[in-house]
Design a protein around this nucleic acid. Structure first.
Lengths: 341, 341
DNA sequence: TTGTATGCGTTATCAC
DNA sequence: GTGATAACGCATACAA
């Protein structure tokens, strides 16, 4: 590989001069020598060694990105936004999948630190416990939490969409369409996100004086399969609900399959409402009415925040909470009569 | 940050000894000092600086991964496989999206080179022209082509699934189900992959003595929207086809939507067959019969190959061509009669 | 069994 | 205007 030394030799100048020219820090360098150096660098096809540079400047122009699983259709959009935004500002990203495994997350965090990334965007596997928070603080690295709120004793910068509001939006819409018995396909009881969305469901019902019926709640794991399974179980317990809201689109899609398999129709017999607005949701039939999460914007904002932190600037807001939106498509109908028994 | 110097000082030894212990190269170091060093490193929470190390060893344990767009549902699986495989072997990956933009691809290649990644996996935007091939050769970096064959004058290692065989498999199946007029939603005429698959379609028909009817071919861009548009146009030209094969699942899904919108039924009126087996395909209704591309395996093999190259080992095969498989689900039916006019 | 010295490629400091 | 030289943190040949 060509180094500045090679250029210096060929140009008959010192490496200092070469370095200055190449970094546009020409406090005072003859136009002539400058052009000669530039020309020679071009000729030799010189490529600066970012490792060496980083060793001194303490900057790698690389961001760490830790998510549960890129295979989860919610993430590609987010990741794409982060990569785009980073790329515009001259940052590359290292992608890490944790599978919601705490140990993997910890290993990745350490690795990224060793590689001297300039900052990290983290969709954490676990709720930020005392221990976990301390671990993150110990990193001494700019950090932005994505799709997760920072747990109380800590206040890491974070950007996420309000799940409580989102589900409430959805349930309110179902109520407005005349539905009274509304089932809910929840995420795991243990997950923060799952809990928050569940609370939105309960609050929306209670707001209009409906008592929450635990028989109408099923706890899944955000995958299509548990959506199917959930509907099956719910229908066995109580066939009287006319609508179901899912904590994410994938479960909603599973629910639709399961409903259809029983010769029931969506939305005529049972209305289905999702959450996330992943790509699939508009491609299935009937197209899924859902709560849109601005995932590209989330990724973009998280990256912008992170870069501000890296540059030592202050953040206007440490917690950015984005608003979900109701996206009406075809999977919810007005309740006109009692469902068939 | 803690360095080996700090540890050396605290342990009362030289940095050489510390370095040796930390790198398990203990040609002969007293158990006692070794344990002391290890303990102190632990206490101080020492994290080796990979930049400094890489500067000497010329290894970063980082791989570059260049794809068109992670948002394309074909890629998350592949990327996941690459990340998994890399991670097992202690490599991280830098993700880059080119949007099939040659200029972006070139910029990423240069950047990765400057960052001294150990190797690159590339799903190139362009067919490997003379110029492009030379550019890749000039990198002097281990490189594996993914989902693309190496164009003739060059023979970069590559792994991909045979599209010709895949489409042929699909069309043969349709023929076996009694279909004779089979439409085809192709990729762009300009793309190598698109061309290869199209040739599979034509060959399959010609094999049984059917003349290819250009009126039954539509050139799209692999997106769901062009699948819809394609079907619309095809139906306007000639309503007599009983089956349609798409060059990818997304277009097939679009086709299904379009067919249903015309009050026709899949598969009773028109059978639909896809290609890729992306996640969506099994979630829609009817579930899409498709040609399965082993995407996880592709990613895994590409990574294994790349790491072999990095380690200076010989490759058993430079071109790995994986076999596609027919995956029968619900979107293809036997042709019993002429379709409704 | 351990330490000294050198170099990796760059930027930064300061002298000329 | 330009050039020595130190420093970044680490690995390693060689010396002790």
């Amino acid at each position: 590989m060509i180094t500045i030394k090679d250029i210096a030799k060929k140009a008959g100048v010192s490496i200092t001069t070469v370095s200055q020219v190449l970094n546009q820090k020409e406090i005072g360098i003859k136009k002539e020598t400058k052009e000669r150096i530039l020309r020679i660098a071009e000729e030799l096809d010189y490529k600066p060694n970012y490792l060496a540079r980083g060793l001194i400047t303490k900057k790698t122009n690389t961001l760490g990105l830790i998510i549960p699983d890129i295979t989860n259709p919610f993430f590609p959009q987010v990741v794409r936004a982060i990569e785009d935004t980073g790329n515009h500002r001259n940052y590359n990203i290292i992608l890490c999948n944790t599978d919601n495994n705490q140990k993997k997350e910890k290993l990745y965090l350490e690795m990224l630190q060793k590689k001297y990334v300039d900052g990290i965007i983290l969709t954490s596997s676990t709720r930020t416990t005392e221990e976990h928070g301390l671990l993150l603080e110990k990193l001494k690295l700019p950090l932005v939490l994505l799709d997760r709120a920072a747990a109380s004793p800590f206040d890491f910068p974070s950007v996420y969409t309000c799940g409580y509001q989102g589900v409430m939006l959805g349930v309110n819409y179902l109520l407005k369409q005349g539905h009274r018995k509304i089932a809910y396909l929840s995420g795991p009881e243990t997950s923060l996100v799952g809990k928050e969305r569940l609370e939105g469901y309960m609050a929306a019902l209670q707001n209009v004086g409906i008592t929450v019926n635990p028989q109408l709640i099923y706890y899944g794991d955000y995958k299509a399969e548990t959506g199917e399974k959930g509907i099956t179980e719910l229908l066995e317990k109580d066939r009287n609900f006319t609508a179901v809201m899912a904590a994410n689109d994938l479960m909603a899609v599973g629910a639709m399959r399961s409903i259809k398999n029983r010769q029931l129709k969506v939305p005529e017999d049972i209305s289905v409402l999702g959450f996330d607005n992943i790509q699939i949701s508009r491609l299935i039939d009937p197209a899924l009415t859902t709560i849109h999460q601005p995932s590209y914007e989330m990724g973009k904002m998280a990256t912008d925040m992170l870069i501000r932190l890296i540059e030592g600037k202050k953040l206007e807001k440490r917690q950015v909470i984005l608003k979900p939106e109701l996206l009406i498509r075809e999977s919810v109908a007005e309740r006109k009569s009692q469902p068939s028994p």
